[in-house]
Write a protein that binds this DNA or RNA. Structure first.
Lengths: 221, 221
DNA sequence: GACCAATTGAACTAGTCAGTACATTTATCA
DNA sequence: TGATAAATGTACTGACTAGTTCAATTGGTC
């Protein structure tokens, strides 16, 4: 099987070289752990299985992350950090309100569709009542910035008479998220009950278009 | 703690009386199991814990359900059957299209909000790739009938010129479900990240209203 | 090249948990 | 009432699994 695609980051060490590359090992473990947690949840995941997916040993997992929950928390944080960096790529403030809202929705939809691992981890975390998000401060700021972006777009839209007033940014965000999340989170049961694969192409584009339309129509004056 | 509210169904036995009431025991076990599975997922649930929640013993669980998965499957089926019976209470065919669609959406929203156990079990099942739904034929028919109801309403709406044509019933259903499901399934992480409790009243009504509006506006010509 | 801290390997363990063995009770029916 | 089947209680076990022990190695520093 080989290692999970994480080339050791030789640079970014203290000052001199370092061939043992603990950062690479950490990273390698997190990647393996994410795969296992995504596949089997927190309780279902087996530390030995994670170790097997790794280029290193179980011993290292405990050395770097303390225990299973510590590893899980590290996986969660790494994932949220990744989103933050991707999200910065959007430049919504410079777009017309309608265009900006459409792009945000489409982006969110695509991100969910393209990263089912993220969706499944969030599901797992919610099953556990999000009690591992409690400890992480890294996460709160991130999502609040989404609300700021939405508020900016929405306020401009209202000012131009395009959007109707009186809607909360949080409601816009929840609507977008719901329409993006559900197809991915419930893909298995949808396939089982309706015989349709929401991850395959004809349906995917259709849902994407409808998601954007739903959000815009909900906001239009 | 006492038993979980399931009074033994004395009647409905073969022909004569029967004081041992195995039906009641079965039911009692299923109730206890649902609570445990909802709380901890399939892998996280402990059979001994389920037994402890029961008025009977672990021995009975294996006697009636074979193994842990068999019990889980029984809980799933019982839950879907319950929905089916509730769903029959709606009389949508006699309502005007717009009114019917609004009522269906509001009903679906309320059902999800009022039955978080259902939502969490569906999450659990999706984490496990819905592989336990495979065996159950009981479930397929049920949800397909929802599509029929939607198609009826939608077609009438299109015929009257109220709704725009070209939308699939499945898309309507997915939109309604997404907007109803997400608030409940992700309640914990939403509270953690935004500090808002989607289960509490001011927000709940707001989301309900917006869900209905979103669906209607999506369909309107 | 000796000393130190970071890093790693292999085997082990204590506890947990799904599932079982076996005996016993309860009701049915002839 | 006695034979038969359904239902149940107690105690146990074998496998699994998170986490550990203890020693060894590696690279850097002086």
């Amino acid at each position: 099987m080989g290692r999970t695609g994480t080339a050791p980051t030789r640079a970014s060490r203290r000052s001199t070289g370092w061939t043992q590359d603990p950062q690479g090992v950490r990273r390698n473990i997190i990647d393996a752990a994410r795969a296992e947690f995504v596949e089997n949840g927190l309780s279902g995941a087996r530390v030995d299985e994670i170790a097997a997916r790794t280029a290193t040993s179980k011993r290292m997992i405990y050395y770097y992350f303390g225990d299973k929950e510590g590893l899980y928390r590290a996986v969660l944080e790494e994932m949220y950090e990744r989103i933050r960096s991707v999200e910065r790529g959007l430049d919504l403030a410079s777009l017309a309100p309608e265009e900006a809202m459409a792009r945000l929705t489409a982006f969110t939809f695509d991100y969910h569709a393209g990263n089912p691992d993220f969706v499944r981890l969030v599901m797992v975390e919610n099953i556990h009542h999000a009690r591992h998000l409690e400890t992480s401060d890294k996460i709160a700021n991130l999502n609040l910035s989404v609300l700021d972006a939405i508020r900016d777009i929405y306020d401009r839209g209202v000012a131009e008479g395009l959007f109707r007033p009186g809607i909360e940014p949080l409601d816009v965000h929840l609507t977008i998220s719901a329409l993006s999340f559900y197809n991915v989170s419930n893909r298995a049961s949808i396939r089982q009950v309706f015989g349709q694969d929401m991850g395959a192409e004809p349906l995917l584009s259709r849902r994407r278009t409808l998601a954007v339309e739903a959000v815009l129509r909900l906001l239009k004056a």
